[in-house]
Computed example of a mutant assay.
Amino acid sequence: MSFGFRNSSLEIDAAKLKEKLDSGEDVFILDVRTPEEYDAWRLSYDKHDKTPLIPIDRLFTSQKMIAEQIPKDKEIITLCAHGNRSMMAAQMLSRMGYKVKSVRGGMVAWNQVYDVAEVQQADAARVWQLRRVSKGCMSYVIAVGNEATVIDSTSDLESSVLKLVQDNGLEITNVVDTHMHADHVSGFSAIVKATGAQGYLGAKEGYELLEDVKVSLIDDGHKIPLGDGVSLEAIHAPGHTDGSMCFALKAGEKTFLFTGDTLFVNGVGRPDLRDKADEFAGKLYDTYQKILKLPDDTVILPAHFDPNSITIKHGEPIADTVGAKRNVELLSKPKDEFVKFVVSSVPPRPSNYRVIIQINKQLVPYDEINIAELEAGPNSCGVRM
């Protein structure tokens, strides 16, 4: 069987695919990569928590398997890493009478898709969580009146932070990063330069500041005014990095803790990306003792989730509470046992992490970088509990 060049009529944009899934369309997503690629990084979203896998070489060799495993009464969406193998699969299935589309750009394109969930809607403040569906990155926008504060922005500004701000008639006045990210390029400097907002970074992280980026270096106890008497309080939280910060927001009767990569819903920060795993794991343990002293109903809002163990539900926040964390066995271990477990359990390091750390350290504008390929791959910033 021969195949022609790429057929655009058989392609679908990643964003359009998400729209189909959000509207409840019953599509059949078929991953045609290798099992190794699939196990490392797969599409996991809403009802599609474990998409079917048939590697492209197997697909070509058995029409009987196709008939048995791929339904004729649903639209088929084929998926691979970059959209090449999935286009070959789509062309073959189309010739067999299937209604089929290939995801243009594959998993690399799906890596740029976002979902938004409103965490808090109250007079004191509104809080939105922006989730990068495939990568597992999470950013936040806090609105007090019409003034917005952005926390841990990724670099896909037009499809995430800036779109949300525009849709809600907000003006960005503050930009915050909890730490120097290792798995994605930060949108921090781009937002500060584009909006004139005030930027805030941890004083102990070792950033190389630029003259044209308005930044204040802050430490434990610093309060960032958000308007109407509402503020973000910085909490020094070393362990994932030496200068990591958490930020506490009191909005009405609730307290929200933006934990960055220090503490996740089902994991802890990895301590090894600065090559001081044992030392940083000990600091991480001490940080958790500080966090666990906060009120039980404090809402934990991390900067990442693990797409292989947590499937995003459209519009539903990913969060936990300090009270729930008190019952986690790992956080109740003696310090030496905690350090031993965490250091021995770190996952493979993020792709290109040393390059990404340097980019974020130097506050390099993201438009000077090939972001999509640099950031391709799964999130691996934590140790699962």
Rank of each mutant, 00 (worst) to 15 (best):
I76W: 06
V192L: 04
I76R: 02
P52A: 07
P307I: 06
D336S: 15
V141E: 06
E329S: 13
G377V: 05
R104C: 08
V108T: 14
A109Q: 08
M385E: 11
K50W: 10
F341S: 07
K325E: 03
N379P: 13
A372V: 13
M385P: 15
A67P: 05
K335D: 05
I66A: 10
V32M: 01
V113M: 04
I66H: 04
Q121G: 11
E279T: 14
Q69C: 12
V165P: 01
S160T: 06
V141Q: 06
L331I: 04
F247P: 03
G227V: 03
G239Q: 01
T178D: 08
T149S: 10
A203L: 10
E208C: 13
P317K: 08
K74F: 08
C80G: 06
K16A: 15
S345A: 05
C381G: 15
D278M: 15
Q112F: 12
K335V: 10
K333T: 00
P52F: 07
K361A: 11
Y45V: 11
L292K: 00
I56Q: 07
G24H: 01
V27Q: 02
H48I: 12
V192Y: 03
K163T: 13
R33H: 08
L130M: 10
A122V: 06
I77M: 00
T78C: 00
S44E: 06
P350W: 04
I224Q: 00
D278E: 14
L59C: 02
G260S: 00
F60Y: 14
K72D: 00
S134L: 15
L263T: 06
G196Y: 11
G315Q: 00
K18L: 14
R58E: 01
L263H: 04
L130A: 12
V119L: 07
S159A: 14
M88H: 13
G24N: 06
D219C: 03
S160V: 05
G282E: 09
I357L: 15
T255W: 09
F305S: 05
K276V: 03
V27K: 05
W110S: 07
K333S: 03
S309Q: 12
V346G: 07
L210E: 10
A303R: 01
D336C: 11
Q121A: 13
I371Y: 10
N327V: 04
T195L: 05
C137P: 07
P238L: 01
S134T: 11
T61H: 12
D49I: 13
K214W: 11
C246V: 09
R6V: 15
R384A: 14
